[in-house]
Computed example of a mutant assay.
Amino acid sequence: MTVNQIQVHVENIKCGGCEKSIVKGLESMDGVSNIVIDREQQLISVTADESLREPLIAKLKSMGYPEHGSVAGIEAGLTNAKSFVSCAIGRMS
């Protein structure tokens, strides 16, 4: 196991509600810790084994925060809509 700092540039982080949802979602993943979100840079950094990079990216996408440049067209619209839901949930929790 090689534990590294993994950084992922994502889309759709708009507010503290988004950040709360992302942290909550990533905390549910075994082996992910030290979650840091830079809203201005749209950058998420975590400490995790490199083998978790793809599952991490998939988890973020499922919550509406796809890796920057990875979605387009209708799929981009759908992930944007998911991010609004995640954001609202984050603001309420």
Rank of each mutant, 00 (worst) to 15 (best):
T47W: 12
G25F: 02
D38I: 09
D38C: 13
N34L: 05
G16N: 09
G25H: 03
T2N: 10
R53F: 14
N12I: 04
G17L: 06
F84G: 04
V23Q: 08
C18F: 04
V8D: 04
L43G: 00
E67Y: 08
E40W: 09
S51G: 09
A81T: 14
A76P: 06
C87P: 05
L60H: 03
E75Q: 08
E75P: 03
N4H: 13
V8R: 05
N80V: 05
D30E: 15
V8F: 10
Q41E: 13
P66L: 02
V85Y: 04
E67G: 06
E27M: 08
R91N: 00
I74G: 04
I37A: 01
C15V: 03
K59L: 01
T2P: 06
L78Y: 11
I37T: 08
Y65I: 02
G25C: 01
E27K: 13
V71K: 12
E11A: 10
L26E: 04
C15L: 01
C87Q: 02
N12P: 11
T47C: 12
G16C: 08
K82R: 06
A88D: 04
L78H: 09
E11H: 10
S93N: 07
A72P: 08
V46W: 02
G31M: 09
C18N: 03
S28Y: 08
A58Q: 14
A72Y: 14
E67Q: 07
I6C: 15
I37C: 07
C15K: 05
S33F: 14
L56T: 03
M92F: 12
C87L: 00
L56E: 05
E54Q: 15
M92E: 14
E11K: 03
S93A: 13
T47P: 11
R91F: 02
N4T: 07
M92P: 09
T47D: 15
S70A: 13
E11T: 08
S33H: 14
I22A: 02
S62C: 01
E67D: 05
Q42S: 12
P66W: 03
A58T: 12
S45I: 10
I44P: 08
K20G: 00
M29W: 13
P55F: 15
I74R: 06
E50W: 13
P66M: 07
H68D: 15
G77C: 08
E11W: 09
A72S: 11
S86Q: 00
M63K: 04
S33A: 15
R39C: 01
Q42M: 12
N4L: 14
N4V: 10
A48Y: 12
C18W: 00
S70Y: 05
L43S: 04
S33L: 15
L26K: 06
S86H: 00
E27F: 10
V36D: 13
L26Y: 07
E19F: 03
Y65M: 01
N34V: 07
S28D: 07
V8Q: 07
Q42I: 07
K82E: 00
A88G: 10
Y65F: 07
K24G: 02
K59G: 01
I6F: 15
M29L: 12
E50P: 04
D30M: 14
G31P: 06
E75V: 01
L52Y: 02
P55T: 15
S70D: 09
S21V: 07
S45T: 15
D49N: 15
H9R: 10
K59W: 02
G69L: 00
T2L: 10
G77H: 11
V23K: 06
L56I: 09
I89K: 03
I6W: 13
S51D: 10
S28F: 11
E67I: 04
A76K: 04
